[in-house]
């Protein structure tokens, strides 16, 4: 490297040839890099500053929250070309803690709940996404070995029983514990929610959940405009952005207004029971009083608010 030959360039007078070549190389490299990452422009343009710098749900004051809801509603209306879409944010009802129970003697695995969830919650149509999976299990065990949710034959099949699984809204939720950015938390009524606008999509919660209750938006959900459920909630069924987690929220946009969850209404066997755990006269308390219930994977200490029982 002893050569110090200089070449005369009109602009870069007195620059060694090697340095000039390096400059060219660097320029080429930078250009190539710019071209390589140019697909990023496809998404960068869609993001506004308001969206990008939106605060965490819990840090929004009333005025800011209203602005966010209005913006989301406007965007949802524009996207679907429908003016009946509302994006609301119902708070938890004081004195209410939700719980769910399923009668496994009655459930026959028909999967109507799976579809009802799919429609109610504006799930991606391409993947038949739903918060519920119905497991077909061999009789003779309560273990999950041999579980299958892809069955398409007539139900109930002989020697099988069926177990719908969705988020159990655990009182000791592993998913909440592991989230590095507090994008998921437990509300006062027991529902574990996700701030879709805060989640960074690391999927640690999905690894942590022992019940396969969490779902990731591997792509932006596609819902035909005419099929969009217009009654939307910020923490529930508004159409999610790509790249974030989502999960069952006990239809909080319905249940926080006193209505039953969509999966319960759809169940043709009446296997589902929902209600307020703090109300001693509620149906869910009657289940706990009169039935012998169990929770899935009790040994993990997750303390689900979701119970299973058998009549016979």
């Amino acid at each position: 490297m002893s050569e110090q030959r200089r070449i005369e360039l009109p602009v870069l007078g007195g620059v060694s040839r090697r340095t000039a070549l390096k400059g060219v190389g660097a320029a080429l490299g930078v250009t190539a890099f710019a071209v390589a990452v140019s697909p990023l422009r496809r998404v960068a343009g869609e993001l506004t500053a308001d969206e990008y710098f939106q605060k965490h749900y819990k840090e929004l004051d009333e005025r800011e929250k209203e602005a966010v809801l209005a913006r989301l509603q406007e965007a949802a209306r524009e996207e679907a070309g429908r003016n009946d879409i509302t994006v609301s944010d119902d708070p938890p009802i004081p004195g209410v803690k939700f719980a769910y129970a399923i009668n496994l003697s009655v459930c026959n695995g028909n999967g109507a709940c799976v579809e009802a969830c799919h429609r109610e919650n504006n799930h991606d149509r391409d993947t038949n996404q739903s918060y519920i999976r119905v497991l077909e299990l061999p009789r003779g065990s309560l273990g999950l070995d041999g579980a299958d949710s892809t069955y398409t034959h007539e139900v109930p099949a002989p020697d099988k029983f069926y177990m719908p699984v969705q988020c159990f809204q655990c009182d000791n939720p592993p998913c909440v514990k592991v989230c590095p950015v507090e994008a998921t938390w437990k509300e006062d009524d027991g529902i574990v929610v996700v701030d879709y606008d805060w989640c960074i999509g690391c999927r640690y919660c999905e690894a942590a959940c022992p019940y396969h209750a969490r779902r990731f938006n591997w792509k932006a959900p596609r819902v035909p405009a005419e099929e969009v459920n217009p009654d939307q909630g910020y923490l529930s069924n508004r159409i999610r952005p790509a790249g974030v987690m989502e999960k069952c929220h006990f239809c909080l946009h319905r249940t926080r207004r006193g209505r039953l969850p969509a999966c319960l209404e759809a169940c043709p066997t009446g296997a589902r029971i929902f209600g307020n755990l703090l109300d001693p006269d509620s149906e869910i308390r009657a289940v706990l009083r009169h039935k012998r219930v169990f929770v899935l994977k009790e040994d993990l200490g997750t303390e689900p608010s979701f119970f299973y029982f058998f009549d016979r």
Partner: peptide, 30 residues
């Protein structure tokens, strides 16, 4: 509403809605 009084057992049903899991090969009839 759910039980035909003359034949009250719940009729067999066929699930119509299944998740489409990528890479989960559709199993042949069980």
């Amino acid at each position: 509403d759910c039980h035909d009084p003359h034949a009250p057992a719940m009729p067999a049903m066929r699930p119509t809605f299944k998740p489409i899991d990528r890479f989960l090969p559709p199993r042949e009839e069980h």
